[in-house]
Amino acid sequence: MKKTALFTTLIGMFLNAEVYVYGPGGPAPVLKELASMYEQKTGEKIIVTAGPANVWMDEAKAKADIIYSGNSAMMDTFISKFDGKISAEKIEVLNIREAGIIVRPNNPKKIKNFKDLLKKDVKIMIVNGAGQVGLYEDMALKHGKRENLVALRKHIKVFAQNSKLAVESWNNDPSIDALIIWKHWANTIGSEKAEFVKSGKGSVIYRASEIVIANDSPNAKQAQDFINFIKSDEAQKVWVEKGWIPAK
């Protein structure tokens, strides 16, 4: 009887394994909500730890079942930093997000697109880190117009190391007129403090979140089941609600 009880307990622990997920703050609101939905549907516990990589990297090296990123370059960096824990051929591409401009409520500077940042008297903040290294340069030079970057440079006054710090600066410094960042951060800041303006067809940049199961994960099947769920039609509704573009 004791052996049977022990076996049953072990099987129960296996079926209800905790899956540990680590990654940056950008996709976190989506993944955390989907993790909660998934747990309610299946009973499987998905624990999402998010933020700047230096905060969770050491723990993730020991515990991660899943690693996700804010763009491909970030995932490439993770591959090198995790020393064989994740493999490029196992990476799956999730949803993509649009870069644009966050402005103050009611858009007092009347910014309608990226070109307005080049000619208006605006104080601009950019994110020079995480998944946005060079994002503003890509937007300015998308069509090979050097003069766009020259003009933009004159207005960039604040350089945030990551999106979280950019949001904090936005909330604490009302003198900042515009923030070049991903669309979904406008949802995070809230309509009482931010509006999103599209950069325009000639300047829009997209990046994809990516995800991968750790090579040494003891819960690879459960991890894959969760990834399948976050790519499902049901999950796409959450991605869209949070400001991402649905995967087709």
Rank of each mutant, 00 (worst) to 15 (best):
S199C: 06
A130Y: 07
V48S: 01
N71G: 14
S87P: 00
W56H: 10
W182R: 00
M125S: 07
N71D: 14
S87E: 15
T77M: 06
L152P: 03
T188S: 04
K221F: 12
A220M: 12
P105M: 07
K193C: 00
M1P: 12
K145D: 14
H155Y: 06
A35G: 08
D138Y: 07
I91M: 13
N148Q: 15
G131A: 14
G190W: 00
N71C: 07
W56Y: 14
A247C: 00
Q222V: 04
I245G: 00
V127Y: 10
D76H: 13
E210N: 13
P108Q: 02
N187C: 06
D216A: 13
K198D: 15
E18W: 01
A50P: 00
L6I: 15
P52A: 08
E44Q: 12
I227E: 11
I102G: 14
K120G: 11
M139Y: 08
A64L: 09
I211F: 03
A220R: 10
G23Y: 00
R207Q: 11
W185M: 08
A62T: 08
I205P: 11
K61T: 10
V238P: 05
K63Y: 04
I180A: 07
A53K: 04
P174G: 02
V167L: 09
K123Y: 01
A130P: 11
V127L: 11
K231S: 05
K154E: 15
L152I: 03
S232G: 11
L31C: 03
W185I: 12
Q132K: 12
R153P: 04
G134R: 13
E98M: 01
W182H: 09
M13L: 11
V204S: 03
P246L: 02
F229P: 03
A223H: 04
Q161A: 14
G190N: 02
I180W: 05
Q161D: 14
Q222C: 03
M37D: 14
E168S: 09
A194N: 12
G200I: 05
A88F: 07
N128M: 04
K164A: 15
I213K: 07
A5H: 13
V204Y: 08
E234K: 11
D225F: 04
Q236R: 09
A73P: 04
P218G: 11
A178Q: 12
H155D: 09
D65L: 01
A28P: 03
A214W: 00
D177M: 09
D76N: 15
D138I: 05
K145M: 13
K85Y: 02
A17R: 07
H143G: 09
L149Q: 15
S36F: 00
V103Y: 06
A50W: 02
N107K: 04
K63F: 02
D225M: 05
D177G: 05
L6E: 15
R104Y: 08
A151V: 13
F7Q: 13
Y38N: 08
K248S: 10
G129R: 03
P29L: 05
I47S: 10
N187P: 08
Y136F: 09
L117M: 09
E195G: 10
Y206C: 05
I47L: 08
K123E: 08
A186K: 05
N113V: 02
K157L: 13
A50T: 01
I205F: 08
V212D: 01
N228H: 07
V122T: 14
P52G: 07
A88D: 15
L179K: 08
K120Y: 06
T4R: 14
A60Y: 02
V167F: 10
A220H: 06
L94K: 02
L135I: 14
R97M: 04
T77W: 00
K237I: 00
E59G: 06
